[in-house]
C-alpha cells in the first residue's frame, strides 16, 4: 500500500463510516462519557480514600493502602476482565451491560491514582501552614478545611486534569468488551472493510485532537487560576 493509498483510504473511511454512519460522534460520545464517569467517581472515591488514609484507625489505612497498591500494581486490562466477570456476580445482575462493569472497574482504578494525587497535593502544602494554624489554637479539622485543603486544591486540580487525559486514552481498553467507544469503531469498520492501518491512523488523529485540545484547555484554566492566586 502506498502512502497516497493510505491517505485516500483514511479519507474514504472518515467520510463513509465516521461521518456518514455517525460513528465519530457515537465513538467520541462513549469515550468521553466513560472518561467523565471514571473521573467523576474516581475523584469522589479517591478523595474518600485519601481522607481515610489519614485516619488514626490503622486497619482502615491498611485496607486502603493494599487496595491502592494492588490496583496500581496490576494491569488495567486485567482489572477490566476481572470486573467484567466478577461484578455481575457480586451485584447479582447477570445481564449487566459491559459498559457498566467497565465503568465501575475504571472508576476504581482511577480512584487509586486520584487518591495518590490528592495525598501528595496535601503533602505538598508547607508544613508551616498547619503549624501556624495549630499554634493559634485552631483544631486540626479547621486547619485542614480552611488552610491546607484550599491550598492543596491548587496542586491537585492540574494533576486531576492530567488524570482525565490519561483516562481518555485508557478507555481504549474498554473496546475489548465492545462498549462502543472510539476504539470499538476500529473493530466494526475493520469487519466491513478488512482495512487496518487507515482506520488506526484516523483513530490516532481523533484521540490526539481530543487529548491535545483538552490539555491546552486545562493549561489555560491553570494559568487563569494562578493569576487569581
Amino acid at each position: 500500500m502506498t502512502f497516497t493509498e493510505i491517505l485516500t483510504n483514511m479519507w474514504d473511511i472518515f467520510i463513509k463510516y465516521y461521518i456518514g454512519a455517525g460513528m465519530l460522534w457515537s465513538g467520541i460520545g462513549y469515550t468521553l462519557l466513560l472518561s467523565a464517569i471514571t473521573v467523576f467517581f474516581g475523584t469522589i472515591l479517591g478523595s474518600l480514600m485519601a481522607i481515610g488514609k489519614r485516619s488514626r484507625f490503622k486497619p482502615l489505612v491498611f485496607v486502603i493502602t493494599a487496595f491502592v497498591e494492588v490496583l496500581r500494581g496490576t494491569p488495567a486490562l486485567l482489572q477490566l476482565y476481572v470486573a467484567y466477570f466478577i461484578i455481575p456476580m457480586i451485584l447479582k445482575v447477570p445481564g449487566l451491560s459491559p459498559f457498566t462493569s467497565v465503568a465501575i472497574a475504571m472508576s476504581l482504578n482511577s480512584a487509586a491514582y486520584v487518591s495518590e494525587i490528592i495525598r501528595s497535593g496535601i503533602q505538598a502544602v508547607d508544613k508551616g501552614q498547619t503549624e501556624a494554624a495549630r499554634a493559634l489554637g485552631l483544631t486540626g479539622r479547621t486547619a485542614m478545611l480552611k488552610i491546607v485543603l484550599p491550598q492543596a486544591v491548587r496542586n491537585i486540580l492540574p494533576a486531576l486534569g492530567n488524570e482525565f487525559i490519561t483516562v481518555i486514552k485508557e478507555t481504549a481498553l474498554a473496546s475489548t468488551f465492545f462498549v462502543g467507544d472510539l476504539m470499538t469503531t476500529y473493530k466494526v469498520i475493520n469487519g466491513f472493510t478488512y482495512q487496518t492501518i487507515p482506520i488506526l491512523f484516523d483513530l490516532a488523529i481523533f484521540y490526539f485532537v481530543l487529548t491535545f485540545s483538552l490539555s491546552k484547555l486545562l493549561g489555560l484554566l491553570e494559568r487563569r487560576m494562578k493569576k487569581r492566586a
Partner: peptide
C-alpha cells in the same frame, strides 16, 4: 495554645 501564640522564623502567613 490560644494563650500563647507563636511567631515563626518562616512567618507562615496563610497563603490562601
Amino acid at each position: 495554645r490560644r494563650k500563647m501564640s507563636m511567631v515563626f522564623q518562616q512567618f507562615n502567613l496563610f497563603n490562601n
